[in-house]
Nucleic acid binder design. Structure first.
Lengths: 351, 351
DNA sequence: TTGAAAGCGCTAACAG
DNA sequence: CTGTTAGCGCTTTCAA
C-alpha cells in the first residue's frame, strides 16, 4: 500500500491540525478546542498547543472548517465600481475592520446594473458568504428574495432608510440634497441646475435630487427655474451635462452635481468655455473626494464618510453575526464643506 | 429517535446534491458528474439531473467542493492600499476578468508593510486561494517560501522582472525612470530633484529612482546637482517634500515624483508658495491618474495601464491554472504623457 | 478535562 | 456508463 510518509510537510507541505496535535502531544479534538478559544482546556495543554501551532506555522483550512461548522467567515460586497474612490474607500474600511475579526471579503462589481448585481449575489451565496454588503436600498426583487431564502443577511450602505428587520449604514440622501439647496438659496441664487447622475436603479441619486428639488420648491422656486439633467458618473459626463446647462436661457447660476466626479467635469467644462466659477456659476459636488481640494477653484461639496461607512457596516455585520441585534440603522453625519466653487448670486465679476 | 424528515428543505432549507440525485433517480456520483460537465454520462440521466437541479434550485456547497477537490476557484490579491486609484483599478480589471472564468477574488491590503503582507498571505492560503496576486517583486522571504510550500503560485504585478518559474505582469520601472530623466534632460534642465515615495520594501519605487539617477549619471549630471527625498504616498507627503526641495540651494528646476499623488501635492505646495509651474520648476508625475488632468497646470506623467495590468494578471492566472505555461512575463508599455507641468529649463517667466 | 469517532457535502478512484 | 466507497480537514457530540 505504501501510504508512506505521514509527517508534516512531506505530502503537500501544508501543516494540518493533526500535525499540531502530534507535536503538542494531544488529540486533534483538544487542539481544535484550544485554537477556537474553547474554555474547557487545561492551561498546560493550551500552552503546548499554541506553541506547536506557532512553531509549525499552522493555518486552518477554511473549507474544512466551513463545511463542518457552517461558518465560512466570508463576507461578500457588491459595489457599482471600484474606479470611484467613494466605493473603494468604503470597501477599504470594511475589509480592514472585518480582517480584525478574522473575516475576509470577496469583492465584485455590478457597474450600476441591478441585473448584474443579482447574478453576483447568487455567485457570492454559492461561495458561502455569511453576509453581503450592498450599495443602496433599491435592488432586483430576486436579489432580496434569494438572499432571504438562503438565510444571508444583506447590509445596505450609503442609505439609512430601513426596511423591516434590515441593516442599513449610511446617510440621509434627501436631507443632504436639501442641505445643498438651502445653502445655495442663502447665497441668493434663483435659477438652478442639477446634474443628477443616473437615477434609474439608484435610490441615492434619486433621493439627493428629490431632496434638492423639494427644498427649492418649499422656498417658492418655480419648477421652470430648475433644470435637472442626468449624466453617467464620469468626468466627461459632468462636462457634457454642464455644457447643456450653460446653454439654457436664462442660464442657471447654481449647479448641484450628484458627485464630485461630475462636479469636477462641470468645472473643467467651465474652464474651457471661459465661464467663471463661482463668478458666473456656482458649483457644488457630493462625496468630498481628494480631488475636491485639487481642482481650481477648490470644490464646495458634501462630505461622505465612506471609510467610516465601511467600518460601520463591518461592525453591524459582526453584531448581526453575534445575534445581538437583528435590525440596525446607522446614520452617519454628513456636512457641507464650503470651499471656493460657490459664491453669492449675481457676483458675476467677469474674468 | 425521530430523525424525522429526510426530504429536501425540511431541515436546513438547503438543497444538497443527494436531494438532486434522489429526484433524478440516480446516485450522487452521477449527479456530481453531470453538474461538473464530466463527459461520460448518458444523455437521459444528464437531462434528468439537470432538470432536478433547476427544479430544486440547487446551489453547490463550495466549502465541500473545495475541501474535496482542492479547488476553490478563489483568487487572493494583496495590494498596499485601496485608497489609491492605481491599485483599485488593477483590482477592478482583475476581478472583472476573473469573474468571466467563474473565479472570485478575495481582497486584502498591506498598507505597504511586507510583514502585514506576510500575514495576509497566510490567511489567504488558509482560505484556499488557488493563486495570489502580489504587488512588486520584493516580499518577505517567508511569504514566498510559504506560498511555495503551499503550492500556491504568486503573480507579481507592477513589475516585469522575472524570478525563476514565476509569473509577472507589469512595467519596466527602471526604464520608466530613465525615460523621465531623458525627457527632462532634453528640456535642458541641469539641477534635479526627486520625490521617491518610500523605497523600503518597495522595489518599484527603488527602480524608478535608480533608473532616473542612472540616466542622469550617464548624461554627466554630477550627484551634487541631484537631490532625492522620500515621502509617504500622500498629497501632504508630496507637498512637504517639495517644500524641502525648494529650499535647497541652488534650487532644482525639475522634479520627478514617484507617483501622481506626490506630484499633485508638490504642485499644490507651489501654488501656496507662489512658485510658478512650469516657469520656475517643472514637475513630472507617475501613474497618469484622473487627477493628472484636473490639476492646474495639467500634469506631465507616465501612463501606467493599471486596469490592463489586472486583466493581464487574470489571463496569466488562467493560463497558469491550465498548466499551459509555468513562467510568464508580460511587459505592458508605458509612455510619457506630456502636459503642462513641464517646460524648458530657465524659462522662469516670473508670474 | 480529554480522546475517540462520527460526519459536514462533495468528488474521485475503483469496480461492476 | 453508473454505483459504491473512501475520505478531504475540521468540529463536536459522547464517553471516559
Amino acid at each position: 500500500m505504501a501510504k508512506a510518509s505521514r509527517n508534516p510537510a512531506a505530502d503537500t507541505g501544508v501543516v494540518k491540525l493533526k500535525d499540531v496535535a502530534l507535536l503538542a502531544g494531544c488529540s486533534v479534538a483538544t487542539a481544535s478546542r484550544v485554537l477556537n478559544g474553547h474554555p474547557t482546556v487545561g492551561p498546560a495543554e493550551k500552552q503546548r498547543v499554541l506553541a506547536a501551532a506557532i512553531q509549525l506555522g499552522y493555518v486552518p483550512n477554511n473549507s474544512a472548517r466551513a463545511l463542518r461548522s457552517q461558518n465560512t467567515s466570508l463576507v461578500g460586497v457588491i459595489i457599482p465600481t471600484l474606479d470611484h474612490a467613494i466605493y473603494a474607500k468604503m470597501v477599504s474600511g470594511l475589509q480592514e475592520r472585518l480582517a480584525q475579526h478574522g473575516k475576509s471579503v470577496i469583492i465584485s462589481t455590478s457597474d450600476y446594473d441591478l441585473e448584474q448585481e443579482r447574478i453576483q449575489t447568487r455567485l457570492l451565496v454559492g461561495r458561502g458568504v455569511e453576509s453581503i454588503v450592498l450599495v443602496g436600498l433599491e435592488h432586483h426583487p430576486d436579489t432580496l428574495e434569494y438572499l432571504r431564502r438562503a438565510g444571508v443577511a444583506p447590509v445596505f450602505t450609503y442609505t439609512c432608510e430601513l426596511g423591516l428587520g434590515a441593516v442599513a449604514v449610511g446617510l440621509d440622501n434627501r436631507l443632504a440634497g436639501a442641505t445643498v439647496a438651502g445653502f445655495l438659496l442663502e447665497l441668493g441664487h434663483k435659477r438652478f441646475g442639477m446634474v443628477a447622475g443616473v437615477t434609474r436603479g439608484n435610490d441615492r441619486a434619486t433621493q439627493r435630487r428629490d431632496g434638492f428639488l423639494a427644498r427649492l420648491g418649499e422656498a417658492g422656486v418655480p419648477a421652470s427655474d430648475i433644470v435637472v439633467l442626468e449624466a453617467p458618473y464620469k468626468i466627461d459626463g459632468g462636462a457634457a451635462a454642464m455644457r447643456s446647462l450653460m446653454q439654457t436661457h436664462p442660464r442657471p447660476t447654481a449647479i448641484f452635481c450628484g458627485s464630485d466626479i461630475l462636479a469636477v467635469g462641470a468645472i473643467k467644462y467651465c474652464h474651457v468655455a471661459g465661464i467663471a466659477v463661482p463668478g458666473e456659476v456656482s458649483v457644488v459636488g457630493f462625496d468630498n473626494l481628494e480631488i475636491a481640494e485639487l481642482v481650481t477653484p477648490e470644490l464646495t461639496t458634501l462630505n461622505v464618510p465612506a471609510r467610516e461607512m465601511g467600518e460601520a457596516a463591518a461592525d453591524a455585520l459582526i453584531r448581526l453575526g453575534e445575534k445581538k441585534e437583528t435590525s440596525i440603522a446607522t446614520e452617519l453625519p454628513t456636512r457641507l464643506i464650503v470651499r471656493d466653487s460657490t459664491g453669492p448670486a449675481g457676483s458675476a465679476s467677469r474674468k
